[in-house]
Design a protein around this nucleic acid. Structure first.
Lengths: 167, 167
DNA sequence: AGTTTATCGTTGCCAAAGCAACTAATTCAT
DNA sequence: ATGAATTAGTTGCTTTGGCAACGATAAACT
């Protein structure tokens, strides 16, 4: 308010002086958090209602379809979740017959996790809905813009240590 | 695995047939969720330790600095949170002297919320750290790429109804 | 070999946030 | 003007997910 937008030096966006504020139309952490929360909430509601799985379970299933036989630690690092919730979710999924957990003969601490036939069948249903949801989300961008977005997000993803590590 | 990557029709990325799987290197919802979770977790840990506020409190403060005197409903819609947690957080912030809540003389249900001097002082400290965190996050992109990312995220943000609404 | 150290996973505990039910207040419709 | 519908915010309940402590196994270092 006290700052005139009349000098649009391209990379400005905040007031200088004593009334420094965020520009919420350009603040990336807020954007990403907002989008992610809405996506996860609506995905859980929809997947739960339609297929009886929540988003976390779906993410685990989608990874197990790609990399069968992985241990829990691999799931944690790929989906970025703590091992506590992952362990609990795996226990639940096993009890529902979605996954099989075998001991790793090489390492008594580790396990080999994979989808059962039932888990695979559920996966094959959910993935159709998941891809359709992504398609709708990205429908506001043309094909090239989608590629640009994916490339930029991947670089941000790979740069997260710059924020989460050294604080 | 059963699909040869030898026919790279640009917009492929998934196997066809019975072993349809996600391509996690190109699946936007997973990227965004991963990034958002890591950002929020590390932000809360850092802001809590350094300034005694969590990320939700910081988001509310940053909005109150921009739009003093708004009601809670406005906070909910801008930060994308449910009114329950927002109400509880506001109560806590008031008890700590960060914000003032006055009754709206026009509407007995509504309130006018604003930062106190103490809240403003905290805001002015946190924002420096927040901008520095964003700077580090985006340091892997050049200035133009950052602009592109912001524009694309804004369009995704504005398109969320396509996924959260009709399903 | 034996002791330390590191890793995998489980569990207890807690904070964060959504949903639903509710109260109070306002607006809308007759 | 009065009853119906809407809206603002509070509160109870539940789910989700992180952190820390732990037990069990494996690796590393004398």
């Amino acid at each position: 308010m006290s700052e005139t937008k009349g000098t649009p030096r391209e990379p400005e966006g905040q007031g200088r002086g004593q009334d420094l504020t965020l520009d919420l139309d350009r603040y990336v952490p807020a954007f990403i958090t907002f989008i992610a929360n809405k996506l996860s909430n609506s995905a859980t509601a929809f997947y739960q209602r339609s297929f009886g799985v929540n988003v976390t379970e779906w993410r685990i299933m989608s990874l197990l379809a790609i990399e069968p036989g992985i241990p829990a630690s691999r799931i944690c690092s790929v989906i970025g979740f703590d091992k506590g919730p992952v362990s609990r979710t795996l226990t639940l999924m096993k009890s529902r017959g979605l996954i099989a957990i075998r001991n790793d003969p090489q390492d008594g601490r580790s396990h080999s996790i994979s989808l059962t036939a039932k888990g695979r069948a559920t996966h094959d249903k959910v993935i159709v809905a998941a891809l359709e949801r992504e398609r709708r989300l990205l429908a506001c961008l043309d094909k090239n813009e989608q590629e640009v977005l994916i490339a930029l997000l991947r670089r941000i993803h790979d740069n997260l240590d710059a924020v989460t590590g050294g604080s």
